[in-house]
């Protein structure tokens, strides 16, 4: 396990400001209709916020790298789930399936 790392309060404050700013961005972009990109943009902003929380508030940036491996294993299986579900849904559209 990596050595215990104390994060300066200033870093926490900067992350908090970034999270508040990104929350504002989420609300602001919701006013516009980007069509199929709506969900993508909202998820992109949320992902950045999630990454900041994981890296700084949950110390993933400073901890033992094995935690990173465990975390990305979960992300990988989420990707697997999305990929195959989307493979079905998207190819259903191409096949003219009425579902």
């Amino acid at each position: 396990m990596g050595a215990h790392h104390i994060i300066p309060a200033k870093t926490f404050l900067n992350v908090l400001i970034a999270l508040l700013f990104l929350t504002f961005v989420t609300v602001w972009v919701a006013q516009f209709d980007f069509g199929v990109m709506n969900a993508f943009i909202a998820m992109a902003v949320a992902s950045i916020k999630g990454a900041l929380v994981l890296m700084y508030f949950m110390h993933l940036k400073y901890d033992d790298k094995s935690y990173l491996v465990i975390f990305f294993t979960g992300i990988f299986f989420l990707f697997v789930f999305f990929f195959f579900s989307q493979l079905d849904i998207v190819t259903r559209i191409f096949e003219g399936n009425t579902l």
């Binding site: 493979l87 190819t91 259903r92 191409f94």
Partner: peptide, 11 residues
């Protein structure tokens, strides 16, 4: 179930 043929072949 109504799953696409492509997904069926892959699975």
């Amino acid at each position: 179930s109504g799953q696409s043929e492509v997904a069926g072949i892959v699975f």
